[in-house]
């Protein structure tokens, strides 16, 4: 097999595999009956997922992610736009990195 072909097949494999993860959950849920426990649990799924993604960032040992999370939470609480919150967090971390 040519090396070029192997590169393209790898990219294709990653692309198809990743697409399957994106549409797979939606299709799996079609097999599950609606209502009852599943519907109630689905209500809680978004929050539980966000916290699951965020928790390892907050506790990864470095200071930059916790600082960014804190800035975003505070700026978000102040009612300012999400743009200020996210880029404010990045800017503060960048400045602190210069100082450390």
């Amino acid at each position: 097999m040519g090396e070029d072909l192997q590169v393209w097949l790898t990219i294709a494999g990653m692309a198809v595999g990743t697409l399957m993860t994106r549409i797979g959950g939606f299709w799996l849920m079609r097999l599950v009956p609606e209502g009852g426990f599943i519907s109630r649990a689905l209500n809680h799924l978004p929050g539980a997922l966000v916290i699951s993604i965020l928790a390892p960032y907050a506790l990864d040992g470095g200071w930059s992610a916790p600082v960014a999370i804190l800035v975003a939470l505070v700026v978000g609480r102040l009612g300012l736009s999400a743009i200020y919150a996210v880029f404010g967090a990045c800017a503060l971390v960048a400045i602190l990195r210069l100082a450390v």
Binding site: I51, A68, I69, A72, L73, A85, V86, V93
Partner: peptide, 11 residues
Amino acid sequence: VIVPAFFALML
């Protein structure tokens, strides 16, 4: 840190 900051906002 864009991703953790963004996810914190979504909380």
